[in-house]
């Protein structure tokens, strides 16, 4: 009960942000939420034990699908997000049937190639996508109203957080964990490994597609170079790693932490600020493989158990 009130408090704080925060903070929060969803979606795939580098690819696909459906088919921008999700999910389903038969480095490197492959396809279908110069929408979603955009992204992020939490609490999570820990054992206990992998791959790609769509609708343009940029691959990974993988809380904390740092870094070093993210990934892998959330939780629990011990010993006297 205490927890629910705690979470509700945060949701209300986040939802009412536009009333007490300035335009700049609102913009920063919007960006943080976008990366938070991406980070969670990457982490959800990782929970199955498969390291995917495909985020940037599906993000870009969603972005293009959303923009093209708005300007060519003239559908409502919010509706186009669903289109983006369905499109990304559809492509993920087709691609997944091939790449999800692969494991470890094979899977990782094939998904790493996806962003490049999608980018080349987009560049070559220039009639539809505008080629290398990209395309522009006449206006951003909700006429560019930043408060409404913020609420839309917040809404999507909360749903993503709920999905992630559901995935960690429901029966599915046993299947997913067992696939990660020992696939052969999982298979021999009757888990349809391939089915679960396709399922997770498709819906995480759908999330990435939606986020790509929102991002495009917010800025009202797509361009191969910036839409398939390394940022959308690197930052979510760094965020999840810093916060702690295999948890919901980890990517959330990581996104807030790194998102705030990122704004500061952009100000002091406009060129090459991603260097810090590479460094963060390397440092976390080498020295802090569990991420800050798990380490902090352990410290907290240790202290608590020590306190209990102290109490017990003082009572004994």
């Amino acid at each position: 009960m205490k927890k629910i009130i705690f979470y509700l408090f945060f949701v209300i704080m986040a939802a009412t942000l536009p009333y007490y925060a300035g335009g700049y903070l609102l913009h920063v929060s919007t960006t943080i939420l976008i990366f938070m969803s991406l980070s969670l979606s990457w982490d959800m795939m990782l929970r199955t034990g498969q390291l995917s580098f495909g985020n940037a690819g599906f993000f870009g696909l969603g972005a293009y699908a959303s923009l093209i459906s708005v300007s060519n088919l003239d559908i409502h921008p919010v509706l186009s997000l669903f289109f983006a999700a369905v499109f990304a999910a559809g492509v993920a389903l087709v691609v997944g049937f091939a790449v999800l038969r692969l494991r470890k480095i094979y899977f990782a490197i094939t998904t790493l190639a996806l962003a490049l492959v999608f980018e080349v396809i987009v560049m070559n279908l220039s009639d539809l996508t505008g080629g290398s110069s990209g395309r522009v929408l006449p206006q951003a979603i909700f006429g560019g109203n930043s408060v409404l955009i913020y609420w839309l992204i917040l809404f999507i992020t909360i749903i993503v957080i709920l999905i992630s939490e559901l995935l960690n609490k429901s029966k599915t999570h046993y299947a997913i964990n067992s696939i990660r820990n020992d696939e052969i054992t999982a298979r021999s206990s009757g888990i349809n490994v391939f089915k679960y992998l396709v399922f997770v791959f498709v819906f995480t790609s759908a999330i990435q597609g939606i986020i790509g769509g929102v991002y495009t609708q917010q800025y009202a343009f797509v361009m191969p170079e910036s839409t398939f940029s390394l940022d959308f691959l690197l930052l979510p990974i760094a965020m999840a790693l810093v916060g702690g993988i295999y948890t919901t809380m980890g990517p959330i904390l990581g996104a807030i932490f790194l998102g705030l740092i990122s704004e500061y870094l952009k100000l002091i070093m406009p060129y090459g600020h991603l260097f810090i993210y590479g460094l963060i990934i390397v440092i976390v892998i080498l020295f802090l493989p569990e991420g800050i959330y798990k380490v902090a939780r352990k410290k907290y629990r240790n202290r608590k158990s020590q306190e209990v011990k102290l109490d017990a010993s003082s009572e004994g006297k």
Partner: peptide, 24 residues
């Protein structure tokens, strides 16, 4: 493979960005 891939991915980003800082 997980830490190895992520580590070398991080190194690759660091090298790219270092070059960007010096030579744009």
């Amino acid at each position: 493979h997980l830490p190895q891939l992520l580590l070398t991915f991080g190194i690759s980003i660091m090298l790219i960005e270092l070059i960007k800082i010096y030579w744009t």
